[in-house]
């Protein structure tokens, strides 16, 4: 193939790919743009793309009207809290399965995975009633607990696949040198496992941030994270597109940025090692 043929092919591919990419991304772009419009401009006909009066008033108004940052903070507590708690439990489990495997290890792993496949609606009523009776409804503690449990299998699995890649000889060498179990974990294993743990953490924060079954069903006003707060825009009063957009932009921006850094982990984490 000649040089120009390759180049023209590359130009065409670039144009098609960018066109489709922008088309898929457009709803997000449109939301961000709308968040800077006045409510009147947001529903103007024909729609205004860039030539509107840019304003920040939606962002301040969303906060003034609904205490937005309370919900934002709830999302942070729930996603980070459930992730840290989950990591704490999962690091121990994944470590023991990866480095001291027993006959039943594979079965335990598969069983843990099977709990992830349980449809949440199958346990909705008992959890709701248990939460009601123990005063956990609409509390951050309750949501942290539930989200830790639903994402625990994913955390264990991801960590397990990362730990598996650490060569066992290094641990044996440390043992030969007389390192204790804890010294082995803290000084040998942890430094090697940090990248894996960090990626697991990132993916899990994203999953917990966007979780929208339990957060919608177990919260009212107090502990509602952004998923539930945004849902309150489903019964709107008056003009609200610009405010919905501002609330949405703030809700997705941090996670969009984190997500772009975790593309690789997404594949590993959500396919449970079935695709590498």
């Amino acid at each position: 193939m000649s040089h120009t043929a390759i180049d023209s092919r590359k130009i065409i591919m670039t144009a098609i790919a960018w066109g489709i990419g922008l088309l898929i991304f457009f709803p997000i772009l449109w939301t961000i743009l709308t968040s800077f419009k006045t409510e009147a401009d947001a529903i103007a006909s024909p729609p205004m793309f860039l030539g509107f009066d840019w304003t920040l008033e939606n962002y301040t108004e969303v906060q003034d009207r609904s205490n937005y940052f309370q919900h934002f903070w709830n999302s942070v507590v729930i996603s980070v809290g459930s992730t840290l708690l989950g990591l704490l439990i999962a690091i121990l489990a994944a470590w023991s399965m990866a480095f001291v495997p027993a006959k039943g290890t594979k079965n335990v792993l598969m069983w843990m995975l099977s709990t992830k496949m349980l449809p949440p609606v199958g346990v909705l009523i008992p959890i709701y009633l248990l939460f009601r009776d123990t005063g956990l409804l609409d509390t951050l503690t309750g949501l942290v607990l539930v989200l830790t449990l639903i994402n625990l299998p994913i955390i264990v699995w991801m960590l397990y696949t990362y730990f598996k890649e650490i060569p066992g000889e290094i641990l044996e060498a440390a043992r030969m040198d007389g390192a204790s179990l804890w010294a082995e974990i803290i000084h040998v294993l942890t430094p090697m496992a940090v990248p894996g743990i960090a990626s697991t953490m990132l993916l899990n924060i994203i999953l917990a941030w966007n979780e929208a079954f339990w957060t919608l069903n177990l919260t009212a006003a107090k502990a509602a994270p952004l998923t539930a707060f945004i849902a309150s825009y489903s019964s709107p009063e008056g003009l609200f597109y610009a405010k919905l957009s501002a609330a949405s932009t703030m809700a997705i921006a941090p996670i969009l940025i984190m997500g772009w850094f975790s593309q690789k982990q997404l594949v590993r984490g959500l396919t449970f090692g079935a695709v590498k």
């Binding site: 919608l216 539930a228 949405s248 997705i252 997500g259």
Partner: peptide, 13 residues
Amino acid sequence: APFFVMPTVSALV
């Protein structure tokens, strides 16, 4: 990008 948008936001947008 759409994968990282929370379900309630994408549905309402």
